[in-house]
Amino acid sequence: AEEIWQQSVIGDYLARFKNDRVKALKAMEMTWNNMEKKEKLMWIKKAAED
């Protein structure tokens, strides 16, 4: 689920960090860890469908 979420937001994060992939990935990891369980559930369901 986290991978699907990352694939959907990586472009936004890379743009925000001027294509600094290391910073973008760290920010994504922090965002994922801070997400509410119900927000993650949507992505977990999406992962299950694929």
Rank of each mutant, 00 (worst) to 15 (best):
A1M: 09
R21I: 13
D12S: 12
T31Q: 08
Q6E: 03
E36F: 03
M35Q: 01
L25V: 08
L41G: 05
K46N: 07
E29A: 11
N19Y: 12
L25N: 08
W5V: 00
E36Y: 03
F17A: 06
L25T: 11
V9M: 06
E49A: 10
E36N: 09
M30F: 13
W5R: 01
K18Y: 11
E39T: 04
T31W: 06
A48R: 10
A47D: 04
V22G: 10
D12M: 08
L41H: 08
A24T: 03
I10Q: 05
I4N: 09
V9P: 00
W5C: 01
M28R: 00
V9C: 05
I4T: 08
L25G: 07
M42Q: 15
E29T: 11
T31H: 14
A15N: 05
G11W: 08
I10M: 11
D20G: 01
D20R: 02
K46W: 06
Y13L: 03
E49S: 08
I4D: 03
A24Y: 01
I10F: 09
M42T: 11
K38T: 15
V9G: 01
M42F: 15
K40G: 01
V22R: 06
D20Q: 03
D50A: 11
A15D: 10
E39H: 06
T31L: 04
E39Y: 03
Q6F: 08
E2C: 12
L14I: 05
N34I: 06
A24M: 08
A15G: 10
M42N: 09
M35F: 04
R16K: 10
I10L: 13
E39P: 02
Y13N: 02
F17V: 02
Q7C: 12
A48Q: 14
E39K: 04
N19G: 11
G11F: 10
F17M: 04
K38Y: 07
A15E: 15
K40N: 02
I44G: 06
E49I: 10
N33P: 02
K45V: 11
K46C: 07
Y13W: 04
D50I: 15
V9E: 02
D50K: 13
K38D: 13
N19D: 14
K23Y: 05
K38H: 11
N34R: 06
F17D: 02
M42Y: 14
S8P: 00
F17W: 11
F17E: 06
L14F: 04
N34G: 06
K23M: 12
E39L: 07
T31A: 15
M30D: 15
W43K: 02
E39W: 03
K23D: 06
Q7T: 08
M30P: 01
K18E: 14
S8Y: 12
N33I: 13
Q7M: 14
Y13V: 02
K18I: 05
Q6S: 09
F17L: 03
K26C: 04
E49C: 06
N34W: 04
A24H: 01
F17H: 10
D12V: 12
K46M: 14
E3D: 09
